[in-house]
Design a protein around this nucleic acid. Sequence first.
RNA 1: GCCCGGGUGGCGGAAUUGGUAGACGCGCCGGACUCAAAAUCCGGUGGCAGCGAUGUCGUAAGGGUUCGAGUCCCUUCCCGGGUACCA
Length: 861
Amino acid sequence: MSFYDSSKIEKKWQKYWLENKTFKTPENTDKPKYYILDMFPYPSGSGLHVGHPEGYTATDILARYKRMKGFNVLHPIGWDAFGLPAEQYAVKTGTHPRITTERNIIRFREQLQMLGFSYDWDREVDTTDPNYYKWTQWIFLRLFERGLAYEDEQPVNWCPELGTVLANEEVIDGKSEVGGYPVIRKPMRQWVLKITAYADRLLEDLDGLDWPESTKEMQRNWIGKSIGAEVDFNVPDLNEKIRVFTTRPDTLFGATYMVLAPEHNLVDVLTTEEHKTSVEKYKEAAGQKSDLERQELSKEKTGVFTGAFAINPVNNKEIPIWIADYVLAHYGTGAIMAVPGEDERDWEFAEKYDLPIIRTVQPPDNFDGKAYTGDGPSINSDFLDGLHITDAKTKIINWLEENGVGNKSVNYKLRDWLFSRQRYWGEPFPVIHVDGKPKAVPDKDLPVTLPDIKNFQPTKSGEPPLAQAVYWVETTDPETGKKAFRETNTMPQWAGSCWYYLRYISPDYEGGPVDQEKEKYWMPVDLYVGGSEHSVLHLLYARFWHKVLYDCGVVSTKEPFQRLVHQGMILGEMEYSAYELDGKIISADEAAQIEGVTRIPLSETDVEKKGERFFMKGTEINVDAKAYKMSKSRGNVINPDDVVKNYGADSLRLYEMFMGPLEQVKPWSTKGVEGVNRFLNRSWRLFFGDGETVKFNISDSEPDKNQLKILHETIKKVTEDIENMRFNTAISALMIFVNEANSWESVPKSVAETFVLLLSPFAPHMAEELWNRLGNYNTLAYEEWPAYKEEYLISDSIEMAVQVNGKVRANISVPSDKVTDKDFVIGLAKQQKNIIRYLEDTTIIKEIYIPGRILNLVVKQ
RNA sequence: GCCCGGGUGGCGGAAUUGGUAGACGCGCCGGACUCAAAAUCCGGUGGCAGCGAUGUCGUAAGGGUUCGAGUCCCUUCCCGGGUACCA
């Protein structure tokens, strides 16, 4: 039996591709270009997991396909190598993060090469390389020059366990996204990037992008633009004004009280003597709460009265001023007018503290809720009465502006981006402090490199590890010669990944982050593939930097990533579980209610499905059937190295694409890998026969009509499916071809060659080997992609269904040249035994014929 | 709660976008080869009834539009992801 030795053949071609630089990006620009990018991997110590090759195989297939289609393809890879794990490892072991990082990169590179990806290995970039972060710093200086990077003392998310501050986005439910440690609020001096200045452009330019709608929607929500008005409320006793932001100025007549955030700077001024104690107490309690506590305790609204009153400008009514932590200091003006009639939160608060509620929008008759937030005619609103929301808003805004008590206003949820971290393993800021003021390091002195230090531990007070490198921190201002101190914070990991896609274009260019001539040719990225976990942060930050670079004239496109696709997560194998309590097997439903149960793994053959649920075979005990996220603790992690060892890289690639649509979440199945592995072996045997001896099964004969038909059907299907990234059905088409061809006496060489080319993007190692053994001595990577000919697809006859009253009653075979002949088809149909039976004693009232598809005879008794 | 996805055989998934539901793969059943097993090959495989022809039910549930609905519309349920007092 001939057999395919995957490990030997795969290594052979990997070596060939590297040595011949087969996938070196062309330098000429005479052909159309295709820039296909994988999301920047972090080279972690645990190596590649099976999730990585999913997206990478998809892009690799496209890259290989586009090369064969005559495109110049840019398909690079590199390392987002700054980051916390290497630093934490350094704290623990004293190993410099550089050592760890280099080791991990080598491992990752080997693993990627083992999978046969067609990257241009001469374009690797590494964010920790001073030649790279020189330009990260350079871009930061452009931000600084433009006033888009500033220092600010502000309450930040301080994580004592990690010894660093975190961006708002890195805090999930009051805990750090990395590690899940508690996070507290602490005022500190920080670098902040003014992403809010680009909010509108980041929002508007989403419209032109070919991205998943859900991702665009998430970005829109994150930016959170809302249009409304600002209104001033006078506090006559104190001669003060309180400004509020509202999206519903039309409900102004229903504003029956005001609420300030506890941190609002007028709170102390407003509070009357008799309320001082309770207000102080409330403020203190709110200030001490961590974000987590604030969220947990916020189920029930709390607040206290300040004793002060403001005047509602539309009706001059006196309304009380409260403070409550359901009003956020950092959104809008940190103060609201409360309109309980049309706002659920205000209603809840008003109910609790017995504050007046006035409806100003007429709810529908059947409305039985509390606050009514829908549309309707205004009531109790003087000159707005009868107007619906939109018109009422316009009118009241005009009124506010005429009377000088307010104006139209826009607000964003998006906040400026907290950009500094108290870490060692990150890009140093190219900034020195002279006389207490930040000053840019001149471009010519870049990069500001990381000093070597021994102790990577941050200080308890929050001083970054770099502060220990006194010789590095203390420097002189090159301009004035004055004593200066280097910035000891470093940049967050996002920095390096904000612009890496540009560096790939000209990785060795010394005149700037990117060679502008080449940038014009290669940008934008035509296809960007990566996980949906980056839907907001990385993609928003990168878009922001790109727009700044656009404004600086460095790049020529407004957006970096034209088309974006997220690959779905790969889960562990499906698990069937029964549960045991005190030696007794109990049902999964029961187990979910009780603690202290033991999970008993079952095999697929132990269970059966009844209705919607799975049960232990022959019992009424229902069991769980679920695939879980891969995790070390669950022990369901699949290691790609093992898969490659057992089945080969081509099998892994093929399986990951065959599992289902790329974007979908799907469970792993080792049996499924065996399935595609069998397919590859069958493909191999197509060429080398099935006997004891290896015999070449290829003939020089001309392909017959039938062979050409199936071949060209396969070409058509595979081509269309690759174009649409439907790799699972493309592979299915290849399988159908092989199943068919296996029944042939021999395979005509021309057919065999075409098949090998079709297979090559998916299983490049086997394809190269077959191509070579067919007598071609060059790589097939730049062979022309096969084109199908319509003439071969036409068959002599077409199978069609005949329906009577919408139900299929017979199948007929119609000669191709008669397909458009309705009368002929109906005549043929009426000869069918089963049709005759159904037409008996009926009258045909309608004949619906869709040529080549279906004939439906509508009859009546 | 709100915003996005999505529910199709025992399992992963197909279905030319309104035209024969279940392609392809896994699993399972039967057969060939083998002393035997593995591997491989051949055949079968949605449920129910029937020897069969065939009939009938069937794409989460219910209703609607249509000659015809997995696909379009309405209602409900379930699962996954995001988000959460943003005024």
